[in-house]
Amino acid sequence: MRSVTCFFLSIRVWRRLRNFYSTATILKDLWIKFMDFPTPEFSAVTTLDGQQMDYYDSETKKLIPRQVWMKEIASNGMWKKDSAIREHVAQIYKTNIAVLMQRFNQTRGVHTYQRMYGCGWDDETDIKYGFDQYGYDGEDFLTLDMKNSSYTASVPQAQTTVQKWNNREQLALLLLYFKHECIYWMKEFLNVSKAAFEKTEPPEVSLLQRNQDYYVECHVTGFHSRNTTITWRENGQAINDSRKLVKPGKILPNGDGTFQKNVTLYVLPDEWRMDQYACVVEHKSFTETIQKILTEDEIRIIKSKMYSSQKTFKTSMIVYRTAMGSTTSDKCASPPKACGL
């Protein structure tokens, strides 16, 4: 007697709004050494499903949209209020890092104090969760235990803060934020971004060749989602020959909230004149698949490395922030407000 057992693999896709604040002590001589690209003491970024939405730091003191669809939100009055909140949080974090240096018996050096918080949502089952984590000098400091509704210390130096923050009233406000307000803003951002995807122009696809060698680059720029798929196909079939495919380049940000990427193919002219090679770009937001067929007319010869006309943004720290909030309450528990240690 034979039996067959079938296993069904269910993959759950979570939508996530992540936030991470960071502040650091800056040594005077280090600041002077890197004056051309100074490191801000405080910085903040929001990401939605892994894509950066905005950026703030203590040097510019401006909240900058990183996605085209965020510019619509940035035009309303709440944007200035949200920028002011970031400035207020930066001051509190500067005080907190001084407190931590005392607790850890430190008098000098570069130190970092970070917070990552946000929420996740399964749009199929409607399961929701929140998270709130703090770190100091790259190590865990304290964490919010959502199940038990309390903060837990990761190091002895966090015990004082845990006793202060495990206030029943403030914890109740914090949990309400993660279960309702954070999820609400995540859904709002998802709706705005979805509507923007439906109205945006398709990405630009170019076939580039350096100095007439046998490597052909498919350069795609102007796409909005990191999940955009870029592949080379031979006669309509995906290419699996490692001799022809070169490792794809990294996804790089453009200055307008879009991305760019190169995927390189190694192929002899006689081959692509005999068979059809095409670079194919796909994403669920596209009305149709984008395809660029490799022909002599489509190839552009370049004599130097390809660079983006858009300025790319690089930061030494990636920091996430939460959705819009208010500063009218004296309570510090509900994000994006910050609490003293």
Rank of each mutant, 00 (worst) to 15 (best):
D256I: 03
G255Q: 00
F286Y: 15
Y307I: 05
T287E: 12
S308C: 11
P248M: 13
K261V: 15
S304D: 02
H283C: 12
T258R: 04
N254S: 10
S304F: 08
E271W: 07
I290C: 07
E282Y: 08
V281N: 02
K261M: 15
T258N: 08
R273F: 09
T295W: 01
D297M: 08
I301K: 11
L265P: 04
I293T: 09
H283D: 05
Y266E: 14
S309M: 01
D256P: 03
R300M: 09
S304P: 00
D275F: 15
L245Y: 04
F286E: 12
P269A: 13
L245K: 08
T289R: 10
I251E: 05
K292F: 02
V267T: 14
I299V: 07
I251V: 15
K303T: 09
I290T: 06
E282L: 03
I293N: 03
R243G: 13
I251R: 05
Q276K: 12
K284F: 08
I302M: 00
S309K: 11
K250R: 12
S308H: 02
R273M: 04
Q260H: 15
K292V: 09
E282W: 00
N262P: 02
G257M: 05
S242D: 07
V281F: 02
E282G: 10
E296F: 14
T289A: 15
L294S: 00
K305L: 07
R243T: 09
K284H: 05
P269D: 10
K244N: 04
R300D: 03
G249K: 03
L268Q: 05
E298W: 01
V281G: 12
L252G: 10
K292C: 06
Q291A: 11
K305N: 14
I293Y: 00
Y307F: 01
D256K: 03
T264F: 02
V246I: 10
Q276R: 10
M274E: 13
T264W: 02
D256Q: 04
G257L: 07
I301R: 07
D256T: 03
I299N: 01
S309N: 10
S309L: 05
R273Q: 06
S308E: 04
L245I: 09
K244A: 07
I290D: 05
D275S: 11
P269M: 08
D297I: 11
